[in-house]
């Protein structure tokens, strides 16, 4: 399996993302600069955190129109796993690949610390190696992680089991304490917490590695069936 790690001007978690899949998960990965237009040959797409375009206008608003994004949308429509973390999540929201939007954290503080998450849906390509209801520790680092969607959207997210992770305690004011959601098809995940920063017990937790293991194990199963 080969991952693309998309690098925007202002990305700063790209090295951690690359390390997580290349060194800890042990699969192939390559950086792809935002000016590129093709994601040919990649089986999964990772949008790292950071401050793409300095968060000008709105978080993710300008990165969403980077040349590579057309290929990211194409990969998403083809059913390939697409994971956006933190700023990557914000870009997926702006691109319309996921519903909703981000607001400033309710207490206006930049929150940077490990938090407890609850795995709300354990059966997906991103969470199959977790148990539903499992509590995991993954760090967050954001000033605008206060997820918003209207009530109709929230009901849809719940009905389709699109909420994969929620904060055990409300940390930023997010609707329903949402920490991570997928699209309706389930192959695009956006989450504010950083699984790539929790891939080794030396880092305080390896709960994030399980997410990458889930993607790989799902990919292997699917390819074994089709080949």
């Amino acid at each position: 399996m080969k991952f693309a790690v998309i690098v925007f001007p202002g990305s700063n978690c790209d090295l951690d993302m690359y390390h997580a899949v290349k060194d800890e998960l042990g699969v192939d990965a390559e950086y792809v600069w935002h000016d590129e237009t093709s994601l040919e040959g990649f089986d999964g797409v990772l949008l790292p955190g950071g401050f793409s375009y300095g968060d000008y206008l709105r978080t993710g608003a300008i990165a969403r129109f980077s040349p590579i994004m057309e290929s990211v949308i194409k990969a998403a429509n083809e059913g390939k796993p697409v994971l956006g973390v933190c700023n990557g999540f914000q870009i997926l929201l702006e691109a319309g690949l996921l519903p909703g939007a981000m607001r400033r954290n309710k207490d206006l503080k930049f929150i940077c610390r490990p938090v407890q998450l609850v795995v709300e849906n354990g059966g997906t390509m991103f969470t199959k190696e977790y148990e539903k209801g499992q509590e995991i520790t993954i760090p967050v680092a954001h000033g605008e992680g206060n997820y918003y969607c209207d009530e109709v959207t929230l009901e849809t997210l719940k009905a389709n089991n699109q909420i994969l992770f929620s904060y055990k305690d409300d940390i930023n004011g997010s609707v329903n304490s949402i920490a991570g959601i997928t699209n309706e098809a389930g192959n695009v995940l956006g989450m504010m917490p950083h699984p790539e920063r929790a891939v080794d017990s030396l880092l305080g937790s390896n709960d994030g590695l399980t997410l990458f293991k889930s993607i790989l194990s799902h990919w292997r199963e699917r390819n074994a069936i089709t080949s």
Partner: peptide, 8 residues
């Protein structure tokens, strides 16, 4: 398309 986010 860009200047505003119609969701919020």
């Amino acid at each position: 398309k860009l200047l505003a986010n119609p969701v919020i």
